[in-house]
Computed example of a mutant assay.
Amino acid sequence: MLLDSIEVSLVLVALPAIGADLGLGPWGVQWLMSGFALGFAVSLTLGPRTTARWGLRRVYLIAMLVFAAASLAGGLSTNMAVLVGSRVVKGACAALTAPAGLAMIGETFPSGPRQRRAVSVYSLFGASGFSLGLVLSGLLVADSWRWTFLFPVPVALALLVAGRRVIPDVEGAPPARPGLSLLRNGPLMRAVAGAGVLNGVYIGLLLLVTFTLSGGMGWRAWQVALALLPACLPLVISLPFAGRLVQRFGTSPLIAVGALLAFAAQALALARSGGGSYAADLLPSLLLVGASFVVSFAALNMRATQSVAPELRRAAVPLYQTGVQLGSVVMLPLVAALLAGPGGPRAALLATSVLGAAGVAVAVTGLRTRSGEAGA
């Protein structure tokens, strides 16, 4: 989870430098971000079947080895097709192992405080990795953007060595065949849609802010990295207390408040677009979208694991995480295309605002079933 999150944010701050070096605009370089998300989303449903056939340990070790090789190939290449291809491959490798963690938490820990703490720890590693990736990107790009591709190589190899020691060599369990039951599960599908919208508007706003600061304001990579931290550091600080928050308020109200904050962040950025100040025009929206994750990120993860029977969780979690990744797959190309078009940042922010409003509508429908949550 830590490596996957680092991989997402590590390239974000480097996009303007890569574009300048290769002669590409936002539309061209955004494929380095959406390529990873696309590889992740497309391969997620294969994860349970692959691990069932070959075993989690074998799949994990192979995935880490291929991940390291793809990182090395990307860092040594100047061809955009190879760069994007390496990101797609790494996304696919992450998809083979990522769902197992959240699913095993749901199976190992009974519903209640222990499960909420476990999901909070799982979510904490994701949030910490994203923040760490931003900082590392700002430092690495100062020398060369290639280091953002090469840095994951030793990390993946270290995880490969550790995995050989700690992952038991057991036969994979056949995945359950839920048929259409998961798609008819209202709480799960609302979590899928809510997480996808939240991720889409979040990554869309960060992409826009990155190019605004790098291009329009002439900020350096390390300055951009620090400027983006208000959107993710609050989540890192608050996640240890997420379980208590869910215990007190339940998942549905927190998801609804988070969706409302995410929409407010986009609407405020749209209202203030055209200004030339980071503190007055961009920072408030970054803080709001960061607050939306503080409120709803862990709640969405918990809702995804609690909304289905234990035997279906290994099938439900990939579906949930596919929805998360599809938010990036849809919004990154759209925001980049609008950003480079005649409408500029205002058109891009209008699109993210519309998606944010749709997220609020989905979340509000979940409030009607709150009485059936039983404190979940």
Score class of each variant (00 low, 15 high):
Ser111Ile: 09
Val119Cys: 00
Ser120Arg: 06
Ser123Leu: 00
Leu124Phe: 14
Phe130Ser: 05
Ser131Asn: 05
Gly133Tyr: 02
Leu134Lys: 09
Val135Ser: 02
Leu136Asn: 02
Ser137Phe: 06
Gly138Phe: 01
Gly138Thr: 09
Leu139Ala: 15
Asp143Leu: 12
Ser144Gly: 10
Trp145Gly: 08
Trp147Tyr: 14
Thr148Lys: 05
Leu150Lys: 09
Pro152Leu: 02
Val155Cys: 08
Val155Gly: 05
Ala156Ser: 13
Ala158Glu: 04
Val161Pro: 03
Ala162Thr: 10
Ala162Leu: 14
Gly163Ile: 04
Asp169Ser: 15
Glu171Lys: 13
Pro174Gln: 07
Arg177Lys: 12
Arg177Thr: 12
Arg177Asp: 10
Pro178Lys: 05
Leu180Gly: 07
Pro187Phe: 03
Met189Trp: 08
Met189Gly: 07
Met189Phe: 03
Arg190Trp: 09
Arg190Thr: 11
Arg190Gln: 14
Ala191Asp: 03
Val192Met: 05
Ala193Glu: 11
Gly194Cys: 08
Gly196Cys: 12
Leu198Arg: 09
Asn199His: 03
Asn199Leu: 08
Gly200Lys: 04
Gly200Glu: 03
Tyr202His: 10
Leu208Ala: 01
Leu208Tyr: 05
Val209Leu: 02
Thr210Ser: 11
Phe211Arg: 04
Phe211Trp: 10
Gly216Tyr: 05
Gly216Lys: 11
Gly218Phe: 04
Arg220His: 07
Arg220Met: 05
Trp222Arg: 10
Gln223Ala: 12
Val224Ile: 15
Ala225Glu: 12
Ala227Cys: 11
Leu229Val: 15
Leu233Glu: 11
Leu233Thr: 15
Pro234Ala: 02
Pro234Met: 10
Pro234Phe: 11
Ile237Asn: 01
Ile237Ser: 05
Gly243Asp: 02
Gln247Val: 02
Thr251Ser: 12
